[in-house]
Simulated scan of single mutants.
Amino acid sequence: MRPHEAHGFREDHAAPRSLAEFLARAGVRERYPHYDLGAAEARLLRATPHAPVPGHRARRRSAHGWSDPARDCPLDAERARRDLKAVCLAAVCAPKAEAQLAAFVTGGHADLPGAVVFGCLLYLAGLREGAGFWWQFAAGSGSARTSSAAYCLFLDHSRRGEHHDARFWARELGRRGYRPGGRRDPREVRLCAQAAVLRYVDQLDDPDLGPVPLPRPGLTAVLAAFRPPAPVSVRVAAPRLSTGPLRHPALTAAARGSVVQAGTGEALAQARRALAVVRVLERHPLGVRPAQLQRESGLGAAALRPLLAMLCEEGYAQRPGAQVYARGPALDRLAAPGGRGLADQLQRTLSPARDRAGAAVHL
């Protein structure tokens, strides 16, 4: 046998196939193009039964559907992520949150309840590592006032799949007799609210602790951006409805190119900076380096760094390699063929608003 025949080649073999032909044959076809994977996951999370533990009495479910560390351990990562966002929203929207955060900012970063609120703000802004630092600082005191920080750590480790550490905090919560309760808020967080938090956070490089986020004065002003909108009363008798669509004043001003009111303009500017970064990522499907991102977006390194961290955490960007950023899976879902990705995303957002308002919601 000739050497070239030993490797599966013959002289009379046809011309080699092109790489495009091999890739076309290797592609995976979508067998269920209309299947709503997000809705299926939500159904599974709601309907998954918890196996009873031998020798333990059955525990009643937590109020408002919270995950119970005494029962739900190990906890599903997606459920932990949703619960953790709801816990953080409840902490920053609490009536005492502003006073606690102010005491933390002005009191030398020693106020424990304020550290919990600050950690929750960091988590909502996309600074996950910094949030865990301040939760550990508060929960390590062993005080009953900081049980919510221990609960955040239980959820955070479950979200990461670190079940050994999650069990540690579950045992600590059981020792304190803590059970989650209160209203559970499943709404999403606005991108401009996340960017507003980053304006009031400094990163301190400690030689022993590493990067530690510290608050700037004025951080309490961003709490209002996370509070739910005030309920709108509807008059049934003889309503006078506008023929045009309802729009936020900031969006109207942006469309007209006019000046917006104080407070709204800065939030809109932060959202525009994030949009500028996303547009650069769209133009470079194979990835782009931070230096080129700065040139094309017009942002400095100090403004670009927290925006990239936030966009990566929310799935709008990703890092395929060292010092390389590309568009994330969230953008691919929004740009699905036929607009199905965007339609599904809007439906999942509008459905909770419809249920909460008790009325039809249209966009």
Rank of each mutant, 00 (worst) to 15 (best):
R59H: 12
R183C: 02
V236S: 09
P113E: 07
A110L: 11
G130Q: 06
R82W: 10
A269W: 04
L204H: 14
A302V: 15
R184P: 03
L84A: 06
L19F: 04
L268W: 05
L334C: 02
A115K: 13
R71M: 06
A271F: 01
G265C: 02
R79P: 07
A250T: 13
A301H: 11
E41D: 09
F154W: 14
P352R: 04
T106C: 10
A262E: 15
Q318P: 00
Q270Y: 01
G174F: 00
A274M: 14
V117P: 02
W134D: 08
A6L: 15
V278I: 12
G65S: 12
H164M: 11
L286A: 14
V28E: 07
P352K: 05
R295Y: 06
A267M: 11
Q270I: 04
P215K: 07
W135V: 02
S297P: 01
Q318L: 07
V278K: 03
A86T: 10
R289Q: 11
G257Q: 05
L286D: 15
P320N: 10
R29A: 05
P306N: 08
L241F: 10
H284Q: 05
F104P: 02
A262H: 04
R256Y: 09
Q100C: 09
R171P: 00
Y32L: 14
P245G: 06
A301G: 04
P207I: 15
R356I: 08
T252C: 01
